[in-house]
């Protein structure tokens, strides 16, 4: 089996509001997959469908070949799940929660958990409820690492974390995934951290799926062209297959596109837009993401 996760033609609505239509993606074994999108674009919805907590209007998800609506206990044991906000049983203390989870997983790695916990300067008796957001994220991470799952589903690991903890979190994940050929499904709205981390991605928008591709291909093919405008009021274009997004700040015009320079220049000339100093500017993943999804 090549694919750990296969989602086919997912369509979901909340009432009459469409979340997305016909979303399909596959996650290869050993790859890191990012589901990217701004808040409210359906990331958690997808995670819920993936974990079987939401029945999509149509379509289905297969995890390890099993319908996500009816996961067997054996399959659930192979999936590590990090809830949005690093939610855990906060009525337990560090010792109790390890004792609790260890009973459920045969490959439990107690050391992995306590190694991480030692770095937190808290006692075993401390309740999770009384910890800081960063500390809680470490507990959740420690538990998921100790579980040693084949697939990790991480719902917005970055929520509420400052830069240091975010880095730490990803460093551990990276080491874990690369070393043991594990698969990771991650969602985030903070893109900069994920650069050089995720292999494939799906980018969601309020209207549905904007893009599904390898991250490398996206970064290679998605371009930003900048130019100066003589008469900004003439800069009247529309989003289409060529112009994926555009901006105009005072007399600076920006166009985001998968097309090449020639096509864009022709596109501008056809619309009688006078421009100057036309050039491509490189982008980070985050800039590309914003370029694609827009700032609003």
């Amino acid at each position: 089996m090549d694919y750990v996760v296969e989602c086919n033609n997912l369509t979901h609505y909340y009432g009459k509001r469409l979340v997305y239509e016909d979303m399909s993606f596959k996650i290869k074994k050993g790859s890191i997959f990012g589901l990217l999108g701004k808040n409210g674009t359906g990331k958690t919805t997808t995670i819920n469908i993936l974990n079987g907590y939401l029945k999509p209007r149509s379509g289905q998800c297969l995890l390890f070949g099993e319908d996500s609506q009816r996961l067997s206990p054996a399959t659930k044991a192979r999936i590590g799940f990090l809830m949005e906000g690093h939610i855990q049983y906060n009525f337990m203390n560090l010792y109790q929660i390890e004792k609790f989870y260890s009973a459920f997983f045969t490959n439990w790695r107690r050391d992995a958990y306590y190694e991480l916990m030692q770095k937190l300067e808290v006692s075993d008796k401390q309740k999770i409820a009384n910890m800081s957001c960063g500390q809680r994220s470490q507990v959740a991470l420690g538990l998921i690492l100790a579980q040693n799952p084949d697939l990790m589903v991480l719902d917005d690991y970055s929520m509420g974390l400052d830069a240091g903890y975010r880095r730490l979190f990803l460093d551990y994940l990276n080491e874990y995934a690369r070393a043991e050929n594990k698969t990771i499904f991650i969602t985030s709205h903070i893109i900069q951290d994920l650069e050089n981390f995720i292999d494939d991605c799906v980018i969601l928008d309020y209207r549905g799926v904007l893009l599904a591709s390898r991250v490398k291909d996206f970064q290679d093919n998605f371009k930003q062209f900048r130019f100066e405008l003589q008469r900004p009021e003439t800069f009247k274009i529309e989003k289409d297959d060529i112009v994926r997004n555009y901006e105009c700040i005072k007399n600076h015009g920006v166009i985001y596109t998968f097309s090449d320079q020639q096509t864009i220049e022709k596109h501008l000339q056809e619309r009688n837009i006078d421009y100057d100093k036309f050039h491509q500017e490189p982008m980070s993943l985050e800039e590309a993401f914003i370029g694609l999804t827009g700032k609003y």
Partner: peptide, 18 residues
């Protein structure tokens, strides 16, 4: 209450049991 606040029930139902 602890199970439904923050939807912790999702964690519980994710445990490898039916």
């Amino acid at each position: 209450y602890p199970e439904v606040s923050d939807n912790r029930l999702k964690l519980t139902l994710h445990l490898p049991m039916t």
